[in-house]
Simulated scan of single mutants.
Amino acid sequence: MGRRSATALEFNSLLINHQEVIRAYIITQIPGSPDVRDILQEVNIVLWEKQKAFRRGSNFGAWACTVARYKVLEHLRKESRLRGLLVFNDELSEDLATEMADRMPSDIEEKRQALDYCLSSLSAPHRRLLEARYHRNGNQMGEIAEETGRTRESLRVTLSRIRGVLRECVRGRLGHEGGAG
């Protein structure tokens, strides 16, 4: 008897928990492209439509990145027709995609949980600054500085310090949970 399909709840959880992996994969395939968000949404739609095909116990990240690879290739073909861009052949793209998927950290969920914990330990003003910079449509530093009444340089320094605190906190959590702390 084959493996059973994941329940809707299990599938939703997997899909949500793998957004960073899928997005990172897409970015490695088309770095600097403004279309990453659109492609991610297309991948999510395909994954959602094909959720019955996913088998419990399979590698969701690999499956999702395979779907992403095809969506990226589709995007590149469309772009090459529209703009006459150079596009790698499918074999090279697939080799690069496979190598990237193999390099994806297997402990990404552990890292995400550590980051979530560390974000929750930040002060509310620091969390709001990070949200403004990285979540709300990626606001530019000038806009945030104006909204917060800071200079751009002051804001840059503050964000750098917050990222440093988060980096150390995550390292500490991973070391502690891994038995090193």
Rank of each mutant, 00 (worst) to 15 (best):
I144W: 02
R77A: 13
G175K: 06
A68G: 07
R69D: 11
V43S: 11
L130N: 00
R69K: 15
V72S: 08
L96N: 13
D35C: 08
E91A: 15
Y25G: 08
E168V: 01
L122V: 09
G178C: 06
D90F: 15
C169F: 00
G179P: 01
E99M: 10
G61P: 04
A114L: 05
W48V: 14
L119E: 06
S93G: 02
E42H: 08
G179C: 06
L86C: 08
Q51S: 07
S5N: 03
A6K: 04
R3F: 05
L159T: 05
G172L: 14
L47H: 02
L47A: 13
I144P: 00
R112N: 13
A97K: 02
G179V: 06
Y134I: 03
I108P: 00
I162S: 01
T28H: 09
T7Y: 04
S160H: 01
H75T: 09
A97S: 14
S121F: 00
N137L: 02
P31N: 06
Q51F: 01
L86N: 13
D107T: 14
F60E: 07
I16Y: 06
T148Y: 09
W63G: 10
R163M: 04
I26W: 05
Q140I: 08
V46P: 01
G175M: 06
H75L: 12
A145S: 07
G61H: 01
H75G: 11
K50F: 00
L15R: 04
E99F: 09
L155M: 02
S93D: 08
L47N: 05
Q29D: 08
Q113G: 07
A145Q: 03
S5R: 05
R167Q: 12
T28E: 12
M100V: 15
Q113A: 12
N44I: 02
A68L: 10
N139E: 10
K111V: 11
S106H: 04
K111C: 08
E143M: 01
R37Q: 15
Y25V: 03
M100S: 13
E177Y: 10
A24W: 02
T148D: 00
V157L: 08
R128Q: 14
C169E: 00
K78A: 10
A64Y: 03
L15W: 01
M1Q: 07
R133N: 05
A24M: 06
T7R: 05
E153S: 15
D90P: 04
Y70S: 13
E79F: 02
R56A: 10
L130W: 00
H75Y: 15
E131F: 11
R69W: 10
G164S: 05
G138R: 14
K111I: 12
R69Q: 15
L76F: 05
I16A: 10
H18E: 13
F60D: 08
A145Y: 03
L86V: 15
E109F: 09
C118Y: 03
Y134F: 11
G61N: 09
G175Q: 07
A62Y: 06
T148C: 05
E177I: 02
V43K: 06
G175H: 05
S123P: 00
S121T: 04
S93E: 12
A68H: 06
E143V: 03
N137V: 01
R127S: 00
E91Q: 14
L129E: 04
V87S: 07
E74N: 15
F88S: 15
E143L: 03
R133A: 14
G57A: 10
F11H: 06
L40V: 11
A24T: 11
R112L: 03
A180E: 13
D116V: 02
S13V: 03
N89Q: 07
L86R: 12
A97D: 06
I39Q: 13
R37V: 13
